[in-house]
Amino acid sequence: MKRGANSPDDALAAYVDALLDGVEPATNAPVKKNIQKDLEGTVHLLQKYLKPAPPSQEMTRRIQIRLASEWRRSGPGERTNRQAKKKNQQIYILSFATVLVIAGLSTVFLIPDIYGNLQGSAAEISPLAALVGIILLILGLITWIIIHNSRRRKK
């Protein structure tokens, strides 16, 4: 059912609008005649007490002090610093992993040549060098995979 302009809902809304605009409707105004008389008092109460009011200065200051301390600990500036630090850490670890892989590959492929040249015989892979190389290679790969996965999860 469509309500008319003079429905109790519209009348009350118009009355509140007028009051909040600073206009007290005259006693015989249609708006005033149509609202339930007993709601008028409640509207006035709300108009009087529901206006935004600041808390006491003491409370304002207490909250402000705690917020400032929280801001320094975990505000956006601190967050940016932490993110930058984390990013740097990741870059260092990735570089370290790359160095490990390169060192591993070098140990496996270069040392036998040097070893072979020194011995003056055909190149042979020293078992120890091969083992160290393979361990470095595996460590490097594992570190790289862990970092790569953690980055992907964040995205």
Binding site: L50, P52, P54, P55, W71, G75, P76
Partner: peptide, 26 residues
């Protein structure tokens, strides 16, 4: 404030405190 200025955040706090406080106290 998003760039980390506490001063800007404090101004926002002072500007909006009455409204927030009013909602909370009711």
């Amino acid at each position: 404030a998003k760039q980390g200025s506490l001063e800007a955040f404090t101004l926002l706090y002072e500007r909006y405190l009455p409204k927030v406080y009013n909602r909370v106290r009711f």
